[in-house]
Design a protein around this nucleic acid. Sequence first.
DNA 1: TCAATTGTTGACGTAGAACTGCAATCATCC
DNA 2: GGATGATTGCAGTTCTACGTCAACAATTGA
Lengths: 118, 118
Amino acid sequence: MTFGERIRELRLARNLTLREVAAEADINFTYLSKIENGKLDFSDFPSEKLIRKLASVLGGDVDELLLLAQKIPDGIRRRVLERPEAFSRFAALTDPQIDEVLRYIGSRVHSARTTPLS
Amino acid sequence: MTFGERIRELRLARNLTLREVAAEADINFTYLSKIENGKLDFSDFPSEKLIRKLASVLGGDVDELLLLAQKIPDGIRRRVLERPEAFSRFAALTDPQIDEVLRYIGSRVHSARTTPLS
DNA sequence: TCAATTGTTGACGTAGAACTGCAATCATCC
DNA sequence: GGATGATTGCAGTTCTACGTCAACAATTGA
């Protein structure tokens, strides 16, 4: 699932046309077409600002869209900047090790979510 | 310690002038002055590209400088994009919970670092 | 004393990313 | 067959992050 595919999916799920969504997002409908088809001239994705707007207009999840566009969600970014060393260590784990740590979190660490996943 | 302060520290530690470092980094020395003094017109920090160049020229740690400039180091970024859900959960932990998980990693997860901390 | 070196600052310039917009073309669907 | 919607190439325009320039201040050292 690419970013563009997801945008299209969200748009069609609401039975909206390119023109309708583009108008609400204050962009040109041809640009939206290019976004959905991954045919942007330079860069693979639109700006973070526009991604947020599209999420809002389409009722999509901002973080999901940001990730599809290879951008770091705010909640994670904030925490990385607060605890960089911790994240460096976590990032250095292999996939199975990450899974193991997640199981540990699930079993040992309770009421973990103090803030929404954002 | 701000980004600019650290840059200046690195530069002075090598007894280099603004002009010398700027020349090596292919920028104007007045721009470097602003960077060190946190006086950039817009944005608080130079581009990621320039940060890397400065790290190289000054022999500084890229990740340290990136973090001071509120940018996510590559190693972490890559892993976040690979395992977003895991990082969301990790990021949602409180500080003490993160510390607990780090202790767990230290005690249970061996040969964790398959790649450099980058 | 004055000139050489170094650093600071406000105003200004610019390249590239982000986005526009048209024209031509195609596909569907009543 | 025309109304509606989408695609795409290409040449704009806009915006701002990035960086320069010119003038000046501070310090050093002969």
